[in-house]
Design a protein around this nucleic acid. Structure first.
Lengths: 191, 191
DNA sequence: TACGGTGATGAGACCAAGTCCCATCACTTG
DNA sequence: CAAGTGATGGGACTTGGTCTCATCACCGTA
Protein backbone atom coordinates (compact mmCIF):
# COMPACT_ATOMS: atom_id res chain seq x y z
CA UNK A 1 0.00 0.00 0.00
CA UNK A 2 2.29 2.65 -1.31
CA UNK A 3 1.91 6.28 -0.35
CA UNK A 4 4.21 9.29 0.00
CA UNK A 5 2.92 11.70 2.64
CA UNK A 6 1.21 9.46 5.18
CA UNK A 7 -2.08 9.97 7.02
CA UNK A 8 -3.95 11.65 4.19
CA UNK A 9 -7.26 10.93 5.85
CA UNK A 10 -6.37 12.49 9.17
CA UNK A 11 -4.85 15.51 7.47
CA UNK A 12 -8.14 16.03 5.67
CA UNK A 13 -10.09 15.82 8.93
CA UNK A 14 -7.83 18.33 10.63
CA UNK A 15 -7.94 20.74 7.71
CA UNK A 16 -11.72 20.48 7.48
CA UNK A 17 -12.26 21.00 11.20
CA UNK A 18 -9.99 24.04 11.26
CA UNK A 19 -11.48 25.62 8.16
CA UNK A 20 -15.03 25.03 9.35
CA UNK A 21 -14.17 26.71 12.64
CA UNK A 22 -12.45 29.63 10.94
CA UNK A 23 -14.94 30.49 8.21
CA UNK A 24 -17.97 28.27 8.70
CA UNK A 25 -19.03 25.07 7.05
CA UNK A 26 -20.85 26.53 4.08
CA UNK A 27 -18.15 29.05 3.27
CA UNK A 28 -15.60 26.28 2.95
CA UNK A 29 -15.23 24.45 -0.36
CA UNK A 30 -14.06 20.88 -0.53
CA UNK A 31 -11.29 21.98 -2.87
CA UNK A 32 -10.05 24.33 -0.17
CA UNK A 33 -9.97 21.58 2.45
CA UNK A 34 -8.04 19.35 0.10
CA UNK A 35 -5.62 22.15 -0.73
CA UNK A 36 -4.81 22.82 2.92
CA UNK A 37 -4.19 19.10 3.39
CA UNK A 38 -1.88 19.11 0.38
CA UNK A 39 -4.29 17.02 -1.69
CA UNK A 40 -7.00 17.48 -4.29
CA UNK A 41 -10.76 17.30 -4.47
CA UNK A 42 -10.59 13.88 -6.11
CA UNK A 43 -8.69 12.45 -3.20
CA UNK A 44 -11.07 13.97 -0.69
CA UNK A 45 -14.04 12.17 -2.21
CA UNK A 46 -12.04 8.99 -2.36
CA UNK A 47 -11.74 9.10 1.45
CA UNK A 48 -15.19 10.48 2.30
CA UNK A 49 -18.55 9.83 0.73
CA UNK A 50 -19.43 13.51 0.88
CA UNK A 51 -18.44 16.80 2.47
CA UNK A 52 -20.36 16.11 5.70
CA UNK A 53 -18.84 12.71 6.31
CA UNK A 54 -15.41 14.15 7.07
CA UNK A 55 -16.79 14.91 10.56
CA UNK A 56 -18.42 11.53 11.10
CA UNK A 57 -15.77 8.99 10.21
CA UNK A 58 -15.77 5.72 12.09
CA UNK A 59 -19.36 5.83 13.33
CA UNK A 60 -20.14 2.52 11.63
CA UNK A 61 -17.59 0.94 13.94
CA UNK A 62 -19.61 2.20 16.89
CA UNK A 63 -22.78 0.56 15.61
CA UNK A 64 -20.94 -2.73 15.21
CA UNK A 65 -19.56 -2.52 18.73
CA UNK A 66 -23.03 -1.90 20.07
CA UNK A 67 -24.70 -4.78 18.26
CA UNK A 68 -21.82 -7.06 19.13
CA UNK A 69 -22.16 -6.28 22.82
CA UNK A 70 -25.91 -6.84 22.78
CA UNK A 71 -25.62 -10.15 20.97
CA UNK A 72 -22.84 -11.21 23.31
CA UNK A 73 -24.57 -10.24 26.52
CA UNK A 74 -25.37 -13.10 28.92
CA UNK A 75 -28.72 -14.79 28.31
CA UNK A 76 -30.06 -13.74 31.71
CA UNK A 77 -29.40 -10.07 31.01
CA UNK A 78 -32.49 -7.92 30.47
CA UNK A 79 -32.82 -5.48 27.57
CA UNK A 80 -31.62 -2.51 29.58
CA UNK A 81 -28.58 -4.39 30.83
CA UNK A 82 -27.76 -5.36 27.25
CA UNK A 83 -28.03 -1.75 26.14
CA UNK A 84 -25.76 -0.66 28.95
CA UNK A 85 -23.25 -3.22 27.77
CA UNK A 86 -23.52 -1.74 24.28
CA UNK A 87 -22.64 1.72 25.53
CA UNK A 88 -19.74 0.42 27.56
CA UNK A 89 -18.46 -1.48 24.54
CA UNK A 90 -17.98 1.72 22.56
CA UNK A 91 -15.52 3.03 25.13
CA UNK A 92 -12.53 1.61 23.27
CA UNK A 93 -12.99 4.23 20.55
CA UNK A 94 -13.01 7.18 22.94
CA UNK A 95 -9.34 8.04 22.88
CA UNK A 96 -7.56 11.13 24.14
CA UNK A 97 -7.08 12.30 20.59
CA UNK A 98 -10.79 12.07 20.00
CA UNK A 99 -11.44 14.06 23.14
CA UNK A 100 -9.02 16.74 21.96
CA UNK A 101 -11.02 17.88 18.95
CA UNK A 102 -14.42 16.81 20.30
CA UNK A 103 -15.65 20.20 21.51
CA UNK A 104 -14.56 21.97 18.34
CA UNK A 105 -16.38 19.33 16.35
CA UNK A 106 -19.59 19.73 18.35
CA UNK A 107 -19.59 23.49 17.87
CA UNK A 108 -19.21 23.12 14.11
CA UNK A 109 -22.00 20.55 13.90
CA UNK A 110 -24.35 22.62 16.03
CA UNK A 111 -23.87 25.56 13.71
CA UNK A 112 -25.03 23.94 10.50
CA UNK A 113 -28.25 22.24 9.47
CA UNK A 114 -26.68 19.81 7.02
CA UNK A 115 -24.37 18.58 9.75
CA UNK A 116 -27.08 18.31 12.36
CA UNK A 117 -28.99 16.31 9.81
CA UNK A 118 -26.15 13.90 9.34
CA UNK A 119 -25.71 13.59 13.09
CA UNK A 120 -29.39 12.78 13.46
CA UNK A 121 -29.11 10.04 10.85
CA UNK A 122 -26.18 8.51 12.69
CA UNK A 123 -28.18 8.38 15.91
CA UNK A 124 -31.11 6.78 14.14
CA UNK A 125 -28.64 4.27 12.79
CA UNK A 126 -27.53 3.42 16.33
CA UNK A 127 -31.12 3.08 17.46
CA UNK A 128 -32.05 0.78 14.59
CA UNK A 129 -28.95 -1.34 15.08
CA UNK A 130 -29.61 -1.81 18.78
CA UNK A 131 -33.30 -2.44 18.24
CA UNK A 132 -32.55 -5.20 15.76
CA UNK A 133 -29.96 -6.76 18.02
CA UNK A 134 -32.42 -6.78 20.90
CA UNK A 135 -35.18 -8.29 18.80
CA UNK A 136 -32.78 -11.05 17.87
CA UNK A 137 -32.58 -11.82 21.58
CA UNK A 138 -36.33 -12.25 21.66
CA UNK A 139 -37.20 -8.84 23.04
CA UNK A 140 -40.58 -7.66 21.74
CA UNK A 141 -40.49 -4.96 19.08
CA UNK A 142 -41.70 -2.03 21.12
CA UNK A 143 -39.64 -2.83 24.21
CA UNK A 144 -36.59 -3.15 22.02
CA UNK A 145 -37.27 0.20 20.39
CA UNK A 146 -37.74 1.93 23.74
CA UNK A 147 -34.61 0.41 25.24
CA UNK A 148 -32.56 1.38 22.18
CA UNK A 149 -33.88 4.93 22.21
CA UNK A 150 -32.97 5.31 25.87
CA UNK A 151 -29.55 3.99 25.02
CA UNK A 152 -29.02 6.57 22.28
CA UNK A 153 -30.17 9.32 24.61
CA UNK A 154 -27.68 8.20 27.25
CA UNK A 155 -24.97 7.90 24.62
CA UNK A 156 -25.40 11.50 23.53
CA UNK A 157 -25.57 12.92 27.03
CA UNK A 158 -22.68 10.72 28.05
CA UNK A 159 -20.57 11.91 25.16
CA UNK A 160 -21.03 15.54 26.13
CA UNK A 161 -20.31 14.75 29.76
CA UNK A 162 -17.17 12.88 28.78
CA UNK A 163 -15.94 15.83 26.76
CA UNK A 164 -16.35 18.07 29.78
CA UNK A 165 -15.09 15.82 32.52
CA UNK A 166 -12.80 13.34 30.79
CA UNK A 167 -11.94 10.02 32.37
CA UNK A 168 -13.00 6.59 31.22
CA UNK A 169 -15.96 6.70 28.87
CA UNK A 170 -17.25 3.36 30.10
CA UNK A 171 -17.63 4.83 33.54
CA UNK A 172 -19.34 7.97 32.30
CA UNK A 173 -21.69 5.97 30.09
CA UNK A 174 -22.72 3.70 32.94
CA UNK A 175 -23.45 6.63 35.19
CA UNK A 176 -25.38 8.51 32.49
CA UNK A 177 -27.44 5.47 31.64
CA UNK A 178 -28.24 5.10 35.31
CA UNK A 179 -29.44 8.70 35.36
CA UNK A 180 -31.65 8.05 32.35
CA UNK A 181 -33.16 5.02 34.02
CA UNK A 182 -33.79 7.06 37.14
CA UNK A 183 -35.53 9.69 35.02
CA UNK A 184 -37.75 6.98 33.55
CA UNK A 185 -38.64 5.91 37.08
CA UNK A 186 -39.54 9.47 38.06
CA UNK A 187 -41.80 9.79 35.07
CA UNK A 188 -43.65 6.63 35.94
CA UNK A 189 -44.13 7.71 39.53
CA UNK A 190 -45.25 11.20 38.50
CA UNK A 191 -48.89 10.28 37.89
CA UNK B 1 -52.42 37.45 -4.70
CA UNK B 2 -52.71 36.87 -8.41
CA UNK B 3 -51.97 33.52 -9.99
CA UNK B 4 -53.06 31.68 -13.13
CA UNK B 5 -52.91 27.94 -12.66
CA UNK B 6 -53.72 27.44 -8.98
CA UNK B 7 -52.15 25.03 -6.47
CA UNK B 8 -48.61 25.21 -7.80
CA UNK B 9 -47.24 23.81 -4.57
CA UNK B 10 -49.47 20.75 -4.52
CA UNK B 11 -48.82 20.08 -8.18
CA UNK B 12 -45.11 20.06 -7.42
CA UNK B 13 -45.59 17.60 -4.56
CA UNK B 14 -47.66 15.25 -6.72
CA UNK B 15 -45.21 15.42 -9.61
CA UNK B 16 -42.27 14.79 -7.29
CA UNK B 17 -43.91 11.87 -5.52
CA UNK B 18 -44.86 10.21 -8.79
CA UNK B 19 -41.49 10.72 -10.43
CA UNK B 20 -39.64 9.47 -7.35
CA UNK B 21 -41.80 6.35 -7.38
CA UNK B 22 -41.32 5.78 -11.10
CA UNK B 23 -37.59 6.33 -11.47
CA UNK B 24 -36.18 6.81 -8.01
CA UNK B 25 -35.23 9.92 -6.09
CA UNK B 26 -31.70 10.34 -7.36
CA UNK B 27 -32.62 9.72 -10.99
CA UNK B 28 -35.09 12.58 -10.89
CA UNK B 29 -33.88 16.13 -11.50
CA UNK B 30 -35.62 19.09 -9.97
CA UNK B 31 -36.07 20.55 -13.45
CA UNK B 32 -37.98 17.41 -14.41
CA UNK B 33 -40.33 17.70 -11.44
CA UNK B 34 -41.01 21.32 -12.29
CA UNK B 35 -41.59 20.47 -15.93
CA UNK B 36 -44.20 17.83 -15.11
CA UNK B 37 -45.94 20.33 -12.86
CA UNK B 38 -45.93 22.85 -15.69
CA UNK B 39 -43.44 25.10 -13.89
CA UNK B 40 -39.72 25.81 -13.79
CA UNK B 41 -36.79 25.10 -11.52
CA UNK B 42 -36.89 28.66 -10.19
CA UNK B 43 -40.44 28.24 -9.01
CA UNK B 44 -39.67 24.91 -7.38
CA UNK B 45 -37.01 26.45 -5.17
CA UNK B 46 -39.31 29.33 -4.39
CA UNK B 47 -41.73 26.84 -2.82
CA UNK B 48 -39.24 24.42 -1.23
CA UNK B 49 -35.93 25.07 0.44
CA UNK B 50 -34.34 22.11 -1.33
CA UNK B 51 -35.17 18.98 -3.29
CA UNK B 52 -35.81 16.89 -0.16
CA UNK B 53 -38.21 19.31 1.42
CA UNK B 54 -40.88 18.63 -1.20
CA UNK B 55 -41.70 15.50 0.80
CA UNK B 56 -41.67 17.15 4.22
CA UNK B 57 -43.82 20.23 3.86
CA UNK B 58 -45.77 21.41 6.88
CA UNK B 59 -43.74 19.61 9.52
CA UNK B 60 -43.00 22.87 11.30
CA UNK B 61 -46.73 23.18 11.92
CA UNK B 62 -46.58 19.86 13.72
CA UNK B 63 -43.85 21.05 16.05
CA UNK B 64 -45.86 24.14 16.89
CA UNK B 65 -48.95 22.09 17.63
CA UNK B 66 -46.92 19.88 19.94
CA UNK B 67 -45.34 22.69 21.92
CA UNK B 68 -48.64 24.51 22.08
CA UNK B 69 -50.36 21.49 23.56
CA UNK B 70 -47.62 20.96 26.13
CA UNK B 71 -47.63 24.58 27.23
CA UNK B 72 -51.40 24.56 27.37
CA UNK B 73 -51.75 21.34 29.34
CA UNK B 74 -53.28 21.67 32.81
CA UNK B 75 -50.83 22.41 35.59
CA UNK B 76 -51.55 19.11 37.35
CA UNK B 77 -50.68 17.07 34.25
CA UNK B 78 -47.47 15.09 34.46
CA UNK B 79 -44.85 15.12 31.68
CA UNK B 80 -46.20 11.99 30.03
CA UNK B 81 -49.74 13.33 30.03
CA UNK B 82 -48.50 16.54 28.45
CA UNK B 83 -46.69 14.59 25.75
CA UNK B 84 -49.79 12.57 25.05
CA UNK B 85 -51.69 15.82 24.63
CA UNK B 86 -49.02 16.94 22.17
CA UNK B 87 -49.54 13.86 20.01
CA UNK B 88 -53.29 14.23 20.10
CA UNK B 89 -52.97 17.89 19.11
CA UNK B 90 -51.32 16.95 15.81
CA UNK B 91 -54.38 15.00 14.73
CA UNK B 92 -55.93 17.99 12.96
CA UNK B 93 -53.28 17.73 10.25
CA UNK B 94 -53.91 14.06 9.52
CA UNK B 95 -56.45 14.44 6.74
CA UNK B 96 -57.75 11.85 4.33
CA UNK B 97 -55.71 13.42 1.55
CA UNK B 98 -52.57 13.02 3.64
CA UNK B 99 -53.46 9.40 4.25
CA UNK B 100 -53.89 8.84 0.51
CA UNK B 101 -50.29 9.43 -0.50
CA UNK B 102 -48.77 8.45 2.85
CA UNK B 103 -47.66 4.93 2.01
CA UNK B 104 -46.15 5.97 -1.31
CA UNK B 105 -44.28 8.70 0.51
CA UNK B 106 -42.93 6.29 3.12
CA UNK B 107 -41.63 3.90 0.47
CA UNK B 108 -39.80 6.69 -1.33
CA UNK B 109 -38.23 7.96 1.88
CA UNK B 110 -37.15 4.50 2.98
CA UNK B 111 -35.36 4.01 -0.34
CA UNK B 112 -33.00 6.94 -0.12
CA UNK B 113 -30.39 8.02 2.42
CA UNK B 114 -30.79 11.73 1.86
CA UNK B 115 -34.48 11.45 2.58
CA UNK B 116 -34.03 9.25 5.64
CA UNK B 117 -31.59 11.86 6.83
CA UNK B 118 -34.12 14.63 6.45
CA UNK B 119 -36.76 12.52 8.19
CA UNK B 120 -34.37 11.93 11.08
CA UNK B 121 -33.75 15.65 11.43
CA UNK B 122 -37.48 16.33 11.56
CA UNK B 123 -37.89 13.83 14.38
CA UNK B 124 -35.03 15.38 16.31
CA UNK B 125 -36.76 18.69 15.80
CA UNK B 126 -39.90 17.32 17.40
CA UNK B 127 -37.94 15.90 20.30
CA UNK B 128 -36.12 19.16 20.94
CA UNK B 129 -39.32 21.18 20.70
CA UNK B 130 -41.13 18.95 23.18
CA UNK B 131 -38.16 18.81 25.52
CA UNK B 132 -37.97 22.58 25.66
CA UNK B 133 -41.69 22.92 26.20
CA UNK B 134 -41.53 20.44 29.07
CA UNK B 135 -38.58 22.18 30.68
CA UNK B 136 -40.57 25.38 30.58
CA UNK B 137 -43.13 23.59 32.75
CA UNK B 138 -40.43 22.89 35.30
CA UNK B 139 -39.70 19.31 34.27
CA UNK B 140 -36.04 18.44 34.90
CA UNK B 141 -33.83 18.24 31.81
CA UNK B 142 -33.36 14.50 31.63
CA UNK B 143 -36.97 13.61 32.42
CA UNK B 144 -38.10 16.04 29.76
CA UNK B 145 -35.74 14.50 27.22
CA UNK B 146 -36.91 10.98 27.99
CA UNK B 147 -40.58 11.91 27.83
CA UNK B 148 -40.07 13.72 24.52
CA UNK B 149 -38.18 10.80 23.05
CA UNK B 150 -40.93 8.40 24.03
CA UNK B 151 -43.38 10.77 22.40
CA UNK B 152 -41.49 10.82 19.12
CA UNK B 153 -41.29 7.04 19.17
CA UNK B 154 -45.04 6.79 19.67
CA UNK B 155 -45.63 9.40 16.99
CA UNK B 156 -43.71 7.40 14.41
CA UNK B 157 -45.29 4.07 15.25
CA UNK B 158 -48.66 5.74 15.43
CA UNK B 159 -48.25 7.30 12.04
CA UNK B 160 -47.53 3.94 10.45
CA UNK B 161 -50.43 2.35 12.27
CA UNK B 162 -52.73 5.12 11.13
CA UNK B 163 -51.71 4.63 7.52
CA UNK B 164 -52.59 0.96 7.79
CA UNK B 165 -55.78 1.14 9.81
CA UNK B 166 -57.13 4.63 9.21
CA UNK B 167 -59.60 6.22 11.60
CA UNK B 168 -58.97 9.17 13.88
CA UNK B 169 -55.30 9.83 14.44
CA UNK B 170 -55.92 11.13 17.95
CA UNK B 171 -57.31 7.75 18.87
CA UNK B 172 -54.44 5.84 17.28
CA UNK B 173 -51.87 8.11 18.90
CA UNK B 174 -53.36 7.64 22.35
CA UNK B 175 -53.38 3.88 21.99
CA UNK B 176 -49.83 3.78 20.64
CA UNK B 177 -48.53 6.00 23.40
CA UNK B 178 -50.19 3.68 25.87
CA UNK B 179 -48.37 0.76 24.31
CA UNK B 180 -45.09 2.58 24.58
CA UNK B 181 -45.71 3.31 28.25
CA UNK B 182 -46.55 -0.32 28.80
CA UNK B 183 -43.29 -1.31 27.12
CA UNK B 184 -41.42 1.01 29.48
CA UNK B 185 -43.12 -0.72 32.38
CA UNK B 186 -42.11 -4.15 31.13
CA UNK B 187 -38.51 -3.02 30.82
CA UNK B 188 -38.45 -1.78 34.38
CA UNK B 189 -39.93 -5.00 35.71
CA UNK B 190 -37.56 -7.13 33.63
CA UNK B 191 -34.66 -7.00 36.09
C1' DT C 1 -61.10 52.31 -19.20
C1' DA C 2 -56.56 53.31 -18.32
C1' DC C 3 -53.12 53.18 -14.72
C1' DG C 4 -49.76 51.72 -11.35
C1' DG C 5 -48.84 48.34 -7.72
C1' DT C 6 -48.17 43.59 -6.16
C1' DG C 7 -47.10 38.86 -6.12
C1' DA C 8 -46.00 34.83 -8.61
C1' DT C 9 -43.44 33.14 -12.38
C1' DG C 10 -39.72 32.57 -16.25
C1' DA C 11 -35.07 32.79 -17.83
C1' DG C 12 -30.40 32.42 -17.48
C1' DA C 13 -25.82 33.14 -15.36
C1' DC C 14 -23.18 31.30 -11.83
C1' DC C 15 -20.88 28.42 -8.00
C1' DA C 16 -20.02 24.30 -5.54
C1' DA C 17 -21.03 19.24 -4.61
C1' DG C 18 -20.38 14.97 -6.39
C1' DT C 19 -19.32 11.44 -10.33
C1' DC C 20 -16.35 9.49 -13.83
C1' DC C 21 -12.51 8.36 -16.45
C1' DC C 22 -7.82 8.29 -17.47
C1' DA C 23 -3.03 9.46 -16.71
C1' DT C 24 0.68 9.47 -13.37
C1' DC C 25 3.55 8.58 -9.58
C1' DA C 26 5.59 6.03 -5.49
C1' DC C 27 6.48 1.77 -3.80
C1' DT C 28 6.67 -3.32 -3.77
C1' DT C 29 7.68 -7.83 -5.54
C1' DG C 30 9.76 -11.22 -8.45
C1' DC D 1 15.23 -3.95 -13.39
C1' DA D 2 10.56 -4.77 -15.13
C1' DA D 3 5.88 -5.44 -14.06
C1' DG D 4 2.17 -4.76 -10.97
C1' DT D 5 -0.51 -2.28 -7.41
C1' DG D 6 -2.58 1.31 -4.93
C1' DA D 7 -3.04 6.06 -4.08
C1' DT D 8 -3.15 10.38 -6.25
C1' DG D 9 -3.87 14.32 -9.85
C1' DG D 10 -6.57 16.46 -13.28
C1' DG D 11 -10.28 17.67 -15.85
C1' DA D 12 -14.85 17.07 -18.01
C1' DC D 13 -19.52 16.73 -16.78
C1' DT D 14 -24.21 16.70 -14.30
C1' DT D 15 -27.03 18.60 -10.95
C1' DG D 16 -28.50 21.08 -6.66
C1' DG D 17 -29.00 25.53 -5.17
C1' DT D 18 -28.48 30.89 -5.36
C1' DC D 19 -29.15 35.20 -7.41
C1' DT D 20 -30.79 38.81 -10.39
C1' DC D 21 -33.71 40.75 -13.70
C1' DA D 22 -37.55 40.70 -16.78
C1' DT D 23 -42.38 39.42 -17.46
C1' DC D 24 -47.09 38.42 -16.71
C1' DA D 25 -51.68 38.09 -14.42
C1' DC D 26 -54.59 40.26 -11.35
C1' DC D 27 -56.38 43.94 -8.24
C1' DG D 28 -57.69 48.50 -6.78
C1' DT D 29 -58.36 53.10 -7.98
C1' DA D 30 -59.16 57.22 -10.56
Amino acid sequence: MGRWEPDARERLVRAALDLFSEQGYENTAVAQIAERAGLTKSTFFRHFRDKREVLFGGQDVLAELMTGAISGAPAEAGPLEAVEAALVATAVTFTDERRAHGPQRLVVIAGNDELRERAALKMVGFAVAMTDALKQRGVPELEAAVAAELGVLAFNHGYERWLETGGDFAEVARRTFGDVRAAVGSLERAE
